[in-house]
Nucleic acid binder design. Structure first.
Lengths: 227, 227
DNA sequence: CCGTTAGATTACAATTCCGTAACGTGTCGT
DNA sequence: ACGACACGTTACGGAATTGTAATCTAACGG
């Protein structure tokens, strides 16, 4: 496990690094907020240990900026203050846990384990079916490592299919959810978009995921099974 | 608080409804999975109490489909089985808590309170600065109740500005994050897009949010303050 | 006060995206 | 085997999106 330590006190920093490395973690230790933010933004750490009292940029500020940038790496905040107020601020700013100095090293380890486990099982904003995954935040798809660019409607179509993976999605459903519409069947918009989608997510691969169910609609399935 | 109860056992269902209503909650009680899913999808409930053993569509299936549709309403699962296995399945399918029958009513209440509170403070996938908010999932913006349609690049530009709200965003930063690019300054793409963005989020309102900092770049601020 | 410069605004052209229509292909029932 | 029908494929035109360039406006320095 990779840990980023942001701690200006050399004694404590060194102790943390030593203890964590003995516990089998690899550490990066920086001593000011500026570099702490940079390292954290690089997203190479699985968890961050962040002191609140720092020169230059305060720990709270680092935390706030980190979260604003959309980085959700779990953060454990250290502070000399035991004030409830501070604790509230920290948690509001996006900390996952809080530890008051002085503390016992085993407790730090225990808390780090808890928050990393929790963050791992958090639902990431991503959908997937078998080898295909959609990243909702960036609106891109990926299959077997390859990035797939989708137009807005292609993405919405695929998203809807994936949310109903394994179930047949009827034309009617698509009309109502992707267009506004009651018309349904006036044109062949759907077939056209299904076709374009297939050419992107299935054409270049062995196993087709998007199947048509004659007379009913379409299904997307993770295994290759046609029905 | 609005509670949706999905429970086929009439005795238990009635008891739950009575108890919850006495505690000041308003309840909707349905007795099968199909209607449970429909009601839950309507998103009128703040929390769902879901029995696992149901006729037609099983509780697990209801839960799974609900989550696949992107609905995050907290769900408390009820089950006669105390098997660890079942519990794991339930939690994996997206349950927020688990209660084994028979149970004491106060415990149910306590757990409902915990999971609703937790879900409320969960970070919704939305950014906001003052009167402006961005919904990341649907890629739309809203200001003072009015929906604002943004093109893909406009949205990315605004998102980046909002994530750095209060800080000046330089041209260099924009070039690197929104385009790939090292060119920076060859053309005036940025000014043009800023202009288009302003015409949508500021033009029709009293207080401008997007300010230019001469020689540095742009800031977005929730209060009207120019600097 | 004037020239310089940064930024705003507008116009325009290239590209992309989307819905329609026409046509091709395969499947099913008889 | 044949026709009907469902779906696939391709081509085309209009609309939206995006980057470039030209022009206009406002701030700043001296």
């Amino acid at each position: 496990m990779d840990v980023l330590i942001v701690e200006d006190d050399a004694l404590l920093g060194k102790a943390l690094q030593k203890g964590l490395e003995e516990a089998g973690c690899s550490c990066v230790w920086v001593t000011d907020g500026k570099r702490g933010l940079d390292e954290a933004l690089a997203q190479n750490a699985d968890v961050v240990v962040l002191d609140l009292m720092l020169p230059e940029v305060s720990g709270l500020e680092v935390l706030r900026r980190l979260r604003r940038q959309g980085v959700h790496t779990p953060v454990l905040v250290l502070s000399a203050l035991s004030e409830v107020d501070e604790r509230v601020h920290g948690l509001q700013a996006g900390a996952d846990d809080y530890l008051v100095k002085p503390f016992a090293f085993p407790e730090l380890m225990a808390r780090l384990n808890v928050i990393t486990r929790r963050s791992q099982q958090q639902t990431t904003p991503t959908l997937s079916v078998g080898p295909l995954s959609l990243e909702l935040s960036s609106r891109t798809a990926e299959r077997e490592g390859r990035r797939i660019d989708l137009t807005p409607t292609e993405f919405r179509l695929l998203e809807y299919l994936v949310r109903n993976a394994g179930d047949v999605v009827t034309r009617r459903m698509l009309c109502e959810h992707l267009w506004d519409a009651d018309w349904e069947g006036v044109t062949n918009v759907i077939e056209v978009h299904i076709n374009r989608l297939r050419s992107k997510i299935d054409r270049d691969f062995d196993m087709p995921l998007l199947h048509t169910v004659r007379g009913r609609g379409y299904v997307i399935r993770g295994d290759g099974a046609g029905r």
